[in-house]
């Protein structure tokens, strides 16, 4: 085996003590700082639970129709939602959707500005990229431990873990999308006297939107993938059903809740992708010429 070069115990102890110190001295402040996140999550959850099931189905089917103008996707959405209702998974599905929406919204608010910043400065990009690599490859349990220690088990650490896990693709794709906008078009914008803000919001972001939307799609999918792990620390929802299925060796419970997650994934994936394609079609043809 690799020879013992140093004694790692003091190092580990230092990390542990450091975290304990943060929890003791800053726990309350950090929890207060994260409370808007909790409020956002609760508000979305309450809204979804208070809305009648048929209205939610109608809205989602309507959105699917607007995104594709065909009957296939609305039908798939309709059947998936009916499945959730029939299998007695509606409430859990709403809780999971609320977590996903809250995580995605927060990720958008954080990631798009960082993506914009990365696209404008190579230096920022060089610093942020390895951090994103770390966020994506580090097993999520690793950062669950400190977040749970700081915030206690519950929805805040679940939400934070989901955001950490789901943000990187959006940052990367925002950066990529903005960098790939035709420089000739940007130059034209500048030649007509546009300010940097007019250039960014009038030309660059709209043209990067299909790529940014692909990032949003990735983020929603990754947020959904996180629900089982998040349920271990108190997020509830479909993930909790899966967890119970494992705990009780109840295959059916785990299977149906798992299919419920798949149903949600299909709905949100297909809808966001369809919007991306519409945008791409509008912008893309002329670029191909």
């Amino acid at each position: 085996m690799f020879p013992d070069v140093i004694d790692t115990r003091p190092l580990r102890r230092a990390v542990d003590n450091g975290l304990n110190w943060v929890v003791r001295n800053w726990g309350t402040e950090l929890e207060a700082a994260a409370s808007p996140l909790l409020r956002l999550l609760n508000a979305i959850e309450q809204l979804l639970l208070a809305t009648p099931w048929w209205l939610i189905i109608a809205i989602l089917v309507g959105v699917a129709w607007l995104a594709t103008r065909r009957w296939q996707l609305p039908l798939v959405v309709f059947l998936s939602m009916i499945f959730l209702g029939v299998m007695d998974l509606w409430r859990d599905a709403m809780v999971t959707t609320a977590l996903m929406i809250a995580a995605t919204l927060t990720a958008i608010v954080i990631s798009i500005p960082i993506g914009v910043w990365m696209s404008r400065s190579t230096r920022v990009r060089q610093i942020v990229t390895p951090v994103l690599d770390l966020m994506q490859t580090m097993p999520s349990f690793v950062y669950l431990i400190p977040t749970v220690m700081i915030f206690g088990p519950g929805r805040i650490p679940a939400l934070i873990a989901t955001i950490v896990y789901a943000s990187p693709p959006l940052m990367r794709l925002t950066d990529l999308g903005l960098r790939n906008v035709d420089p000739a078009v940007m130059e034209a914008s500048q030649a007509f006297g546009a300010t940097p803000t007019q250039k960014l919001f009038g030309v660059q972001i709209p043209l990067a939107l299909p790529t940014i939307l692909a990032g949003v799609n990735q983020t929603t999918m990754m947020a959904l993938a996180m629900v089982v792990i998040a349920s271990m620390i108190g997020a509830g929802g479909l993930g909790y059903q899966v967890l119970q299925g494992i705990g009780r060796l109840e295959v059916s419970r785990g299977l149906f809740a798992g299919l419920g997650i798949v149903a949600l994934a299909i709905i949100f994936d297909r809808i966001t992708q369809a919007y991306g394609k519409r945008l791409q079609a509008r912008i893309g043809i002329s670029e191909a010429r």
Binding site: D182, A184, V185, E187, A188, S189, A191, F192, V203, P206, L207, R282, I283, G284, I285, S286, E287
Partner: peptide
């Protein structure tokens, strides 16, 4: 004002 070789129109 300027006119460009590859038009540089705003496709959106």
């Amino acid at each position: 004002a300027m006119v460009f070789q590859h038009f540089a129109l705003f496709p959106h």
